[in-house]
Write a protein that binds this DNA or RNA. Sequence first.
DNA 1: CTGCATCCTCTTCGATACTG
DNA 2: CAGTATCGAAGAGGATGCAG
Lengths: 231, 231
Amino acid sequence: MNMAESYGQFCPVAMAAEIFCTRWTPLILRELAAGSTRFNDLKRGVPRISPTLLSKRLKQLEEAGVIERVRSADDAPEYRLTPAGNDLKTVVFGLGFWGQRWIEAQSSLKNLDPSLLMWDMRRNLNPTPLPQPRCVIQIVYPELKQGQRHWWLVIENGETDLCKVDPGFDVDLYISTDLRTMTAVWMGLTTVRSEIDAGRMHITGNDGVKHAINQWLGLSPFAVEKKLVNA
Amino acid sequence: MNMAESYGQFCPVAMAAEIFCTRWTPLILRELAAGSTRFNDLKRGVPRISPTLLSKRLKQLEEAGVIERVRSADDAPEYRLTPAGNDLKTVVFGLGFWGQRWIEAQSSLKNLDPSLLMWDMRRNLNPTPLPQPRCVIQIVYPELKQGQRHWWLVIENGETDLCKVDPGFDVDLYISTDLRTMTAVWMGLTTVRSEIDAGRMHITGNDGVKHAINQWLGLSPFAVEKKLVNA
DNA sequence: CTGCATCCTCTTCGATACTG
DNA sequence: CAGTATCGAAGAGGATGCAG
């Protein structure tokens, strides 16, 4: 943090803002808090950051004592939150919950992104109620262009994989909907039930998997919070 | 917020960071949370921001629904937190408390600023234990250059005024110290008692006012938090 | 795979001066 | 008091290439 970026104030808000309130930093911390440790996993969760800037931010966070760069068993670099970084999670989540309460749904739903949504769904999916040894869920966004239209979630041995190309397995459940609807469900702005009833979401396949959807389809960590503004 | 500044993510952390994590914004919100409402009061609490950028940020915060610009009784513009802005205080203070816990004291004490410190002391001073109808406290930083060396706090009718020129009243209490020591006391990093004992702070004058110093000298709102890192 | 370096363009920021 | 106007400097983003 050079002098030009410094606020020149001893106030803890100013000192902390120098670390936390730079472009992309809250999103990088959100990814780290969600469990990503590798450079390219972070990149995937923050796709529009350039690798140069991500690298710079990671160095700054390391310098600030928020993360540490360590070598994994196979000698690949990993980034992990330090105790100070773990403590900073409360600020990241506080910011997110504030956004969930006060930012109009319309604004958020202008930023649809199927890759981000599916990446998040993969991360929060709960394998427990799904059939063994393998369960395949296909999600289709008919309005999107080829390459973003078809997605497969493959749950096997308690692990969830996300595929953009057909993995070739039998599909247990098909979900067809539009990206806005799926995102709104994920954010807790509406429910699977009401979107099916409204004809914006169609689910076919294994009835057991279908009826357990509210168990395995984990929602956004912020979905529990209710909006306090009306769109 | 134009497209270039947008993160392009529906995640509430990203949406909120677009509002909260821009340069100077947390400091402006801190000033608003502390009670400042006028443009020049905000400028005084955030002295190194340019008026252009302050104006821009206030417009952005208004657009985001965090503050509202209203006309006071004498038709002067005032900025006040909305309910959403009040709710955002928890994030501002969360950030500040994190800073107080995890940022090394040495780093903060590189950013000494007598104007900011005295402005904050004025704001948090508790008039209750001080003699009526008027109490004058002079603070001297012998190492500073003329114009920053002498300060007077004038407490009258429950109101505290801060002067850089001698207001001409009899002084009830003199405090002589260096700026670093006074700042460290203000931040809760040390105590008046131990700094007097160490010879870094000298207090003379009315014994009643002197002995009540821990009552009237309000500290930083973050002073109650203990450091978790060692310098 | 995991990044870092470079070149280029565009936006934002800071400093200063100035106006109603 | 409450901002606006202007301009040069710095930072961020995109594209591309390369190294271990």
